[in-house]
Amino acid sequence: MSTTTLPPDGFTPAPKLADVLPPRKERSKLGMFAYRHPTIAVGGFMVSLFVLMAIFAPLLWTVDPTALAPARRTRPPSELYWFGTDMLGRDVYSRVIYGARISLIVGFGVAICAASIGLFIGLISGFIRAVDAVVMRIMDGMMSIPSILLAIAMMALTRASVENVIIAITIADVPRVSRLVRGVVLTLREQPYVEAAIAAGTRTPMIIIKHILPNTLAPVIVQATFLCASAMIAEATLSFIGAGTPPIIPSWGNIMAEGRALWQVKPYIVFFPAVFLSITVLSVNLLGDGLRDALDPRMAKRI
């Protein structure tokens, strides 16, 4: 079959096609991030707002949250006392703002401690079979006790202080994190890149540090945010039943506990700390949800 090559002027272009979808909007870097991860943006923004509020509490038109003023007891919210005063005449607004400190310290403290201890136990038991059998049975035993009961029991053994609250809640949370990390480690161990590292002569400690640990961090960070939220609730619960932060320190649980007796006549004493607690927990959970979606590779393909 004889063939001829087309001369250059004989090129036929393909017909132009219209765009089916509108092109992507140009966004700033920050805008793009918020568009991609709206829950992280909202949750992160609100959490940082609460953190700033806790740090700069003295500058936010507060008075001494522990100052007693028996003459001005149980005033309703007004221009002078934004959230009213409690039965000892203390300014509820100031107490609620300062109370954020306790909630956040306990929340972050528990998240950091429980995540690190859980990570350590999980890594070890995921890698060493003998340890695994013993440690995981202990963890199972601890998990069979409701964590709040475990925390109450811990508090009953010690004196009331913020540190002890953190320790008590941490101990109750460690089994869950350890289980999570161990599960992740067991999957990661089977990954070809870990097998390749073993074949490349990498020693076990280095395999854990270089290959396992960095890849467990994402799920642990997500878990830590949820721990933070649940620790805030646990702290409030413990304080509310009088087994938590010493009553002298304004914490949301303490404020609610003190207002409990007057709940039917002066509901605002309980109402404001409750609202702040709910919004803080919601923000932290939003952040956690957003992080999970962003860090979980299975969700990464989400459009």
């Binding site: 990954q191 070809p192 890149y193 097998e195 390749a196 590292a197 290959h211 960095p214 890849n215």
Partner: peptide, 12 residues
């Protein structure tokens, strides 16, 4: 290995 996506540590 077979799978070029899981045989390299994504964080290295």
């Amino acid at each position: 290995f077979q799978d070029p996506f899981s045989s390299l540590n994504p964080r290295q």
